[in-house]
Design a protein around this nucleic acid. Structure first.
Length: 271
DNA sequence: AACGCGCCCTGTCCGC
DNA sequence: TGCGGACAGGGCGCGT
């Protein structure tokens, strides 16, 4: 569910809400959510840790605990919510962190595709360095995108979603960015011209930044740390709009399936 | 090695 | 109204 803008929104919320807080108690309600340790080890290892900051890397939420990191990936339906201690634990609660002041940091996940992992700072750094480019960083430029794309025959839409090269773009923003860049999503990545790579680079960054400004896209499940919806959904130009007129040229928006995921695009003005 | 597919899981919606 | 099937923001592991 959450792509870069949604994760970034949650990370900024959490940075404000829980930096400086202590994890005084950790309760694992859904053991299959915990990666790399037993639930008991996970809970014991985190108890007493102090949150020094909250960061995002790719679609991961990373709690800086000093010597170690708590890394949370929300999968499709994961939420991280800060709630009062009086709030009843909802169905689908996965992990309950009690903070030093009594508030609860709740990991909630209907489908349980998400994962939580407690790992050392060094191990996390090594993992982080093995991930692809952060699309909003200065180190990611149009030439980097062009050079990477030139090495793959995969359809550009599936290619842009592959987290090994560029992180953070998922199924919604892949369709949106390709529409902005006027590129047909079925084009093999290695057929993009330098001008198209430049247009796609700009489109990815603009799309993600605007979505952050509107606190992400809520279609169904996504919520920020306060449980509120993002408001970017109404600004989507093609995603979920099959049959509606293209906002640029008026032709009907098409829906196709690529790699098992829905793609939305305008076959008239995306070439 | 790169690529495509199935699978993890629950809820919702649509057609019959 | 009920039921089966398709589909949903992600990511991993498998076989080719």
């Amino acid at each position: 569910m959450p792509e870069l803008p949604e994760v970034e929104t949650i990370v900024r919320d959490l940075g404000r809400l829980v930096t400086g807080a202590t994890l005084s108690d950790v309760e694992v309600l859904r053991p299959d959510l915990i990666e790399g340790a037993t639930p008991a080890e996970f809970a014991r290892g985190l108890a007493g840790a102090r949150i020094q900051g909250v960061e995002r890397r790719a679609k991961n939420i990373v709690f800086d605990l000093g010597e170690s990191r708590l890394v949370v990936n929300l999968g499709m339906t994961g939420r991280l919510l800060v709630v009062p201690s009086t709030e009843p634990t909802p169905p689908h609660a996965g992990v309950r962190f009690t903070l030093g002041d009594g508030r609860i940091l709740l990991y909630h996940d209907v489908r349980r595709f998400g994962r939580l992992e407690h790992t050392s700072a060094e191990a996390w750094l090594a993992r982080s360095e093995s991930l692809g480019f952060e699309p909003l960083d200065h180190g990611f430029d149009a030439e980097a995108l062009r050079a990477l794309a030139a090495r793959s025959r995969v359809a550009i839409k599936s290619w842009i979603m592959d987290q090994k090269r560029i992180v953070g773009v998922g199924n919604i923003y892949a369709s949106e960015a390709l529409h902005r860049a006027r590129i047909d999503p079925t084009r093999p990545a290695n057929t993009l011209t330098a001008a198209e790579a430049k247009a796609l680079h700009a489109a990815v960054r603009e799309t993600l930044q605007e979505a952050i400004d509107f606190r992400g896209t809520t279609l169904l499940d996504y919520r920020d740390a306060a449980g509120e919806r993002g408001s970017f959904a109404e600004r989507l130009r093609v995603y979920g709009r099959a049959g509606e007129p293209c906002p640029r040229c008026g032709a009907a928006i098409a829906s196709i399936v690529q790699g098992g995921r829905s793609t939305f695009y305008c076959s008239a003005c995306q070439r």
